[in-house]
Every structure is written in C-alpha cells, then in structure tokens.
Amino acid sequence: MPRPVALVGHSLGGLLALRAALARPDTVAALVLEDPAKPDGAPAPADGGEAFVADPETVASVESSLIATERDRAAELARMRRETPWSDAEIEAWADSRPLVDRAYVRRGLFLGDPAWEQLFSALVVPTLLVLPPQAPMAPRPELVDNPLLRTVVVEGAGHCVRRDRPAQYHAAVDAFLAQHLR
C-alpha cells in the first residue's frame, strides 16, 4: 500500500482536500488548507455572479480574456501587476482562464454542501494547518472547533490567495509544518 501523503488545497480545493482527509484519513499524513471554501448549505452565485466573467456576446474569441475588450483586459492586467506580487505568468494565466468559466454554472450557483463547517474541522484525525489571510470570512470560528491537531496561521497582508500574495510567509509556515509531520 502506498504511503500516506500530504494534501494541500486552496479555496474549493481546500474543501475537497478536507473532505478527502475526513473520508480516508488512513491515506493522509498531513493536511494544509489555504483559505478553504466554506459550505453554506444553499446554492449561491459565484462572487459577482456573471459579472465575474466577460459577456459571451462581446468576447471576440476564447483568447480574449477577463472583460469584454482588449483595452479592459490590458487595464485589468495593469491593475493586477500594481496590486499583487503575482508573477506575469500567473497574472496572464489568471486572465486567460476567465473566458473558460462555465457561465451556466456561475448562474446556477455553487452548492458546497452541509453548513456544519466547524464540525468538519473538529472531526479531523490528521495534523492540519489552516493558512488564512487576516480577513477570512470563510474560516471556521476557533471557539467552535475543538481539535488539538488543527493549527492556524494568519498571514498578514495576504488576500484569499495567500501563497501568491505572500509566498515567503506561506512557504515558511507550510514547510515547517510539513517537516514536522512528514518523516
């Protein structure tokens, strides 16, 4: 049988990694969750609804991105370069992904499951690191989680993509955690 692995997930991937660790703890040596998506029990449109992506009627081709025109794309790329420490490759890939978003899925909403959020964290039986930005509305409320295997690190100055916004702090916390739990 293969050795248990470290699972690392961000946002929706964090929720999936959390559920995998709960379902198959024997396969998980350590769990790292970067601002995981919180289930709320009801379908809800993605942030910004369909404004999240360009209107398909105004997008000239799949290569165009993010917003309706190339000028809008250029302005958004310039904003990202000013406001984030992300690399050009990450910014370009982020922009290129926008026209690929399934608009019907965004319209229908996102159902992430049962809202018993804190109970999921209390039920974990594997060492878990929760990496959060200072403003983390999806984070489990600490007073409702009773689990000595859960450690939380808040990375100042980070947004939802902690690893991109503050890579040195993110990797320092994650590397130390994994070094302690992967032997």
Rank of each mutant, 00 (worst) to 15 (best):
I67A: 10
A78C: 09
G49Q: 04
S122D: 04
G49T: 03
A75M: 09
W86I: 09
S65N: 05
F52R: 15
A20E: 14
L33W: 03
V174H: 13
L129D: 04
P2G: 09
L77C: 04
S97E: 08
T128E: 06
D114Q: 07
L22S: 08
F177G: 02
R81N: 06
G109I: 10
T128H: 04
R164Q: 13
L144Q: 15
L182W: 05
A172V: 12
L33V: 03
R79N: 02
F52A: 14
D26N: 12
L149G: 00
V126K: 07
A30S: 08
S97N: 14
L124G: 00
G9L: 05
D146Y: 01
V153I: 14
Q119I: 00
S65D: 02
D26W: 10
R82T: 15
P127I: 08
D26S: 15
L129Y: 08
T69C: 11
R166M: 03
E90N: 06
L33F: 01
A116V: 07
A42D: 13
S65G: 01
D96Q: 12
L120Q: 07
P56Y: 05
D146F: 02
V5W: 01
V5E: 01
V162C: 01
T152L: 06
E143R: 11
V53Y: 02
P137G: 02
F121A: 05
A176L: 11
L22D: 10
P134T: 07
A179M: 07
L178M: 09
E83K: 06
A44W: 09
